[in-house]
Design a protein around this nucleic acid. Structure first.
Lengths: 347, 347
DNA sequence: CTGAAAGCGCTAACAC
DNA sequence: GTGTTAGCGCTTTCAG
């Protein structure tokens, strides 16, 4: 790789002059400019970004840290990547696999690489986000997070409670009265919010969800959400009197819903005629299966764009702008997996 | 962020001494070592990797360039990411969206950031990979590519021809004689290989695939593979005499197969009783739908691991090791979407 | 054993 | 207008 020095030598000028024509900073004679430019072309010189970064204290890199590269995360990364590229930032990516220690290691490492900012989907262990983020993060950061109370950090969040409400209202509007739902570990705020939204949405219309109509998924990284969905069907159907089988189920995420649909198909239970299924998140798979899944969507493209926009604004701001906490509203995506309630469940 | 200088000042030594205790290089007195170490701890000093990289001419970053973050690419990235992390490399990621110009820009940019190596899933436009890769890539590189002839570049490839053969043999072994398949743009070598493998696999057993049983998918980034799959069903079923409808279809990738299954479900055609479907690639979705898709798998985890392993070996080799071209063999993944042939297609 | 000095590739003050 | 110099944070000769 040619260096600035090589160009300078070839053009018979000093390095600072080369730098000047490169950055258009400072005055430079038309003749020398063109000499330099042709030297650049001849040597196919490209400025080294590492050296620039060291000098400028800005690497034009953004670190993106996610739990993994599955379902909603990969599409988030896709959009984040596009937004970053559009703004001239490169993306350093890392996965923490929901282990706080790896998360911390990644944050450290990225900061040591002088990233200009960080986008973090925090690791969730038993409890919620580690609060000491504030202590060791020294660059602008925006979280993609649903339970973080501390608004000193930027946060693109999502109204999980309202999502639950939306699901409940929609099912009710379809005439369902005997509805079921799944939940994940209630220690996580966003899971709790989803559930209570659903609960309250039903209650508002005078329906109290029955305890036996709530399926708690096995929370364990070995068992996938798909399997949890299959298990849920067993739970809701096996050994129940037909009148006790819910006519509709809301799953707390799309993968669970897809598992439910899978098992329903296996049993020959028709969707939505015999049972309606509604998901949560609107991952890309939802439109690939049959029947296309009705779901409550997170506006992922918008959230990704907003996260990058806020982050870059903070990075480039001269006036101390700080990324805010914003919460996005859910959108009901009606497809084909939910329909009007039937009188009874046909076994 | 504390710097080495700060540590040196606090410990009352020179920066070079600090550097020495940090890297364990050179001799240093036990007493000074501990003084320095406690200064490091007190200031919570972490060496700056940018400066290190500039000096060392090695950034311990690997650039990974993919078309996008969908289906097989995201799982490839997942595994590549893990392998890199395991070896102490960070991942710089970029998407070229199958545009050669963006691909080139990314390669350039990553090289200017001094990545130690590159993993590239090349952009595919009308033709195949741009051959001038050799000219402007100056770092070790391994491709994830099925059609690149030039073995001066490292390449983790896949035996697409054999994959086609495997699909054909399996369908034949199930008793199918009237089989269909889909193809993509035949300008791409890997598509052609897949098809001819399938063709020859049938021919070996005396079956000649009929022209009308080959569906050419609309190749257009606007129309998804899912839609192509749905279209394929229309093509194979609508307006045909029942005896002319194939009893099994092999799709040239899993998304097309999933689209086929979607449309088959919509029509109430039972899988595999009335029609068998076999996919290609073994993306993670294949196990999430009903019926779980029988498919010909690319061993993605293995390929990712191998790509990183070869690349790192080349990067770290003193003896001029060059990443090779290796081709991985397909694996038949039997699930539930293909079964024994029926006598006739029941309409 | 340890400090001083040079240099990785670049930019920005400061002279001329 | 342009060259010289210093310095970003680090490592590695080279002296002592």
């Amino acid at each position: 790789m040619a260096t600035q020095k090589d160009v300078a030598r070839l053009a018979g000028v000093s390095v600072s002059t080369v730098s000047r024509v490169l950055n258009g900073s400072g005055l430079v004679d038309e003749k020398t400019r063109s000499t330099v430019q042709s030297a650049i072309k001849k040597l196919n010189y490209k400025p080294n970004l590492l050296a620039y970064s060291l000098r400028a204290r800005s690497s034009r890199m953004i670190g993106v840290i996610l739990p993994e590269m599955q379902s909603i995360h990969s599409s988030f990364l896709q959009y984040v990547g596009e937004s970053c590229m559009k703004r001239g930032y490169s993306v350093l990516v890392g996965m923490h696999c929901n282990e706080c220690e790896r998360e911390r290691t990644l944050i450290d490492e990225f900061q040591r690489r002088n990233v200009d900012g960080l986008i973090l989907y925090p690791a969730i262990d038993e409890q919620n986000v580690s609060n000491d983020l504030l202590e060791y993060v020294t660059v602008p950061i925006v979280l993609y997070e649903h339970s973080f109370a501390d608004n000193r950090l930027g946060n693109v969040s999502f109204n999980n409670y309202e999502a639950g409400v939306t699901a409940a209202k929609y099912l009710l509007s379809l005439g369902h009265r005997n509805v079921g739902c799944t939940v994940g570990p209630m220690g996580m705020k966003y899971i709790k919010d989803r559930f209570w939204g659903f609960h309250d949405g039903l209650k508002d219309m005078g329906i109290e969800i029955q305890k036996r109509n709530i399926y708690e998924c096995d929370f364990n990284y070995q068992v996938s959400n798909i399997v949890s969905g299959e298990d849920a069907v067993r739970y809701f159907v096996d050994g129940r009197d037909r009148s006790e089988v819910p006519t509709a189920i809301w799953a707390h995420n799309d993968n669970v819903a897809i598992g439910i649909i899978k098992e329903l198909h296996r049993r020959g239970i028709r969707i939505p005629q015999e049972m309606s299924v509604v998901g949560m998140d609107n991952i890309s798979l939802t439109d690939m299966i049959y029947p296309p899944l009705t779901t409550i969507g997170q506006p992922v493209p918008k959230m990704a764009e907003k996260a990058v926009a806020m982050l870059v604004k903070e990075i480039e701001s001269k006036d101390g702008y700080k990324a805010e906490t914003i919460v996005m509203e859910p959108e009901l995506v009606i497809r084909e997996s939910a329909g009007p309630a039937m009188e009874t469940f046909a076994v």
